[in-house]
């Protein structure tokens, strides 16, 4: 196991900005590539970051992704000041979506984002206050057993 320096970085996400949406997730992936993280872990982190980012773009006004890398894990925290999620169990269900017609025309709204994030992370933690915002805390292990 090579030693990885502790690194942390924050990326802003602007609600409704579909043109730049996805850039932070791509930057995160590039950082992980540069420091030589396992390709499978990179893919999972990138997918989770992208799905979470798109949710902020679609359902919140403002948010940020915080990336933290330690020798043993990668942490992603995605926090937004949006409308929040009223019923998390319902939101987590594959196929459940409140995406608008406009978002669906762009290919979003399958209701698969949150299930995808959960599937790709080793530890998935979601906290949301209706009317205030949502926070996701995702952990990806760098050694030992990781998801495929």
């Amino acid at each position: 196991m090579s030693t990885v320096a502790v690194l942390s970085q924050t990326f802003n996400i602007k609600g409704g900005d579909f043109v730049n949406a996805g850039e932070p997730a791509c930057k995160i992936r590039n950082i992980l590539r540069e420091i030589g993280i396992n390709a499978n872990v990179i893919r999972r982190v990138a997918i989770a970051a992208y799905e979470a980012e798109m949710n902020v773009v679609m359902y919140a006004r403002q948010g940020e992704i915080r990336l933290k890398i330690t020798p043993h894990k990668i942490l992603l925290e995605i926090e937004d000041t949006g409308q929040g999620i009223e019923d998390i169990t319902l939101a987590m269900q594959p196929g459940y979506s409140t995406a608008t017609e406009e978002m669906r025309e762009m290919g979003f709204g399958a209701g698969m984002g949150l299930p995808n994030i959960k599937k790709n992370s080793d530890i998935f933690n979601i906290h949301s206050t209706h009317g205030k915002g949502t926070r996701l805390k995702l952990t990806f292990k760098l050694n030992g057993k990781t998801k495929k």
């Binding site: 996805g22 997730a25 997918i47 762009m106 979003f108 399958a110």
Partner: peptide, 26 residues
Amino acid sequence: LMSDVLTYSGPGKLLMTGLTNIQVIR
């Protein structure tokens, strides 16, 4: 469907789609 595309993994991949917006490329 973008979330559906993200479940597709494996080498040498190609996507056929009817969507042409920037998010498809991302």
